[in-house]
Amino acid sequence: MNVVEVKNLTKRFLQGDAVIKAVDNVSLEISEGEFVAITGQSGSGKTTLLNLIGGIETATDGEIFIDGEEITSADSDELARLRRQKIGYVFQDFNLIPILTVRENIIMPLLLDSKKINNNRFNEIVGFLGLEDRLKHLPSQLSGGQKQRVAIARALINSPKILLADEPTGNLDRKMADEIMRLLIELNNHGVTILLVTHEERYADMCGRKIVMREGRAGE
């Protein structure tokens, strides 16, 4: 079954008088359990495509289905619900909330959804990511790799249908980046569907499938 289905997706920006096609008529399908990498040069449209799929940006044309639900016509509240319940997001600069502890950052999506914390699930994720002894720390007290692991834990806490990762290794040194990549592969082995944006061919090659973006167009 397709977790993500994109049909003729286009995103145009107006830059001065010029119209820029960041995403140009892209169609793709991602099945459950897949690990897909979107790669390409800077400005090729890979992050824009990811943001469109995650409902962070709105499309100019085309359709996006997440777990069978069409999202291009959804309003901002519906998109927010979708991000809470079906999508996990991991960003390059971690986007952790500085005033929250590690534990609080991880459970924040549950609180936003007014859901009870499933301690088994929480402990499973925290254990998998090796964060047990960091739960009371603030983000400012963590290393880059630890911050990214917290971001991944937060993305997984709601058991999303798909994990969207936008250059999750971009702010890390090679050792840390390799560790994060290893964790993502392991997650995928546990059945998590992942869509990874990266400009590093090495990491893209580790994924099951590779989509190359060039001037807004996608090719495999």
């Binding site: 509240d77 927010a80 979708l82 319940q85």
Partner: peptide
């Protein structure tokens, strides 16, 4: 922005 990106509604 982090809250919005992880699914908090604007309101």
């Amino acid at each position: 922005k982090t809250l919005l990106s992880i699914g908090a509604p604007n309101g």
